[in-house]
Amino acid sequence: RKAEALAIKFIAQLLKERGWGVERVKKHQEWSGKYCPHRVLDEGRWNEVKAAIAAELKSLGGKSTTSTNPTSSSPSPSSAANGSLKSKVDSLRFYSKPSWEDKDVVGTVNKGIGFPTVVEKVKVGTAYQYKVKNSKGATYYITASDKYVDVTGSIKTSSSAPKTASTSSNSSSIKSVGKIKIVGVSSAAIVMDKPDRNSSKNIGTVKLGSTVSISGSVKGKNNSKGYWEVIYNGKRGYISGQFGSKI
């Protein structure tokens, strides 16, 4: 893993030069949806890699976290909005559209991190989400529960929240043909929304040694070992073939 070690040193040096903390480091997947860095994700080592970057940054005398005002004095593309948001917990999911579906998850934010702009509060199903924007003006949606987020400013509630079509599937329509045991990973195997690790989205993980029901296997794309078609939270998902052993 020489290339990985060099990348960790390079990223830590960039963070130090800019006065940023390790929370600024994001997966390519969070921005484009591309399954990248695929080896780290396959092996469930993303948090391990971030910890290594944090340790390297500390050894260089850099900051472990970004200052409370990391943005420049120039206004963001959505500076006209009235609020900002921070997560109260680690790994809080945010979505590409007003939805609670796993397939619409774009990424996660950790405690103390969030979005500089809250546009409005919208009703999604029986609960609420905030429509938010990041520093580049990209729009996302995140839970509005005060149990999970802390919001400052005056936020309007939309009276005409966009509606999403129901895409939930009935687990009884997916027939199990057996189970696999998760093997060959450091901590967990990634569950993808389609059998193509270069263009899929991460919809969850299954821990090393755990078992999961399967509905079959498919060749898919970009993996010579193919993929297990698994039943994850009552829905179809896909795990790289090399990380499951049929039992």
Rank of each mutant, 00 (worst) to 15 (best):
K58D: 15
K58Y: 10
K58N: 13
L60V: 06
G61N: 11
G61Y: 03
G61I: 09
G61A: 08
G62T: 05
G62P: 05
K63H: 12
K63V: 14
S64T: 12
T65R: 14
T65M: 13
T66A: 05
T66Q: 00
S67A: 06
S67R: 02
N69T: 14
N69P: 00
N69M: 07
P70C: 04
P70N: 04
P70A: 03
T71K: 02
T71R: 13
T71A: 03
S72T: 11
S72H: 01
S72R: 04
S73G: 05
S73A: 13
S74R: 09
S74K: 10
S74L: 08
P75Q: 09
P75G: 05
P75E: 10
P75M: 04
S76G: 14
S76R: 01
P77W: 02
S78A: 11
S78R: 10
S79Y: 08
A80H: 10
A80Q: 12
A81K: 02
A81W: 03
N82Y: 02
G83D: 02
G83A: 09
G83F: 01
S84V: 01
L85N: 08
L85A: 07
L85T: 05
S87I: 06
S87Y: 07
K88F: 02
K88S: 03
V89P: 07
D90Q: 07
D90W: 02
D90K: 06
D90G: 08
S91V: 06
S91Y: 12
L92Q: 08
R93Y: 05
R93W: 08
F94D: 01
F94E: 03
Y95T: 00
S96N: 09
S96P: 00
K97G: 06
P98L: 06
P98A: 15
P98Q: 06
P98H: 07
P98F: 08
S99H: 04
E101Y: 08
D102Y: 10
D102R: 14
K103V: 15
D104C: 08
D104R: 00
V105E: 05
V106P: 01
V106E: 12
V106H: 02
G107Q: 13
T108P: 02
T108H: 12
V109G: 06
V109Q: 13
N110V: 00
N110H: 04
N110K: 03
K111F: 10
K111G: 08
K111H: 13
G112P: 11
G112R: 05
G112N: 07
I113C: 15
G114L: 03
F115Y: 03
T117V: 15
T117F: 00
V118R: 00
V118G: 01
V118S: 01
V119M: 12
V119P: 01
E120D: 11
E120V: 04
K121S: 12
K121H: 11
V122N: 04
V122K: 06
V122E: 14
K123N: 11
K123L: 07
V124C: 13
G125L: 10
G125N: 10
T126G: 13
T126P: 02
A127N: 10
Y128A: 09
Y128R: 04
Y128M: 07
Q129Y: 05
Q129M: 15
Q129C: 08
Y130E: 12
Y130I: 12
K131Q: 15
K131G: 05
K131N: 12
V132R: 00
K133D: 00
K133L: 02
K133R: 13
N134F: 00
S135A: 14
K136A: 15
A138R: 09
A138P: 01
A138Q: 15
A138Y: 11
A138F: 10
T139Y: 01
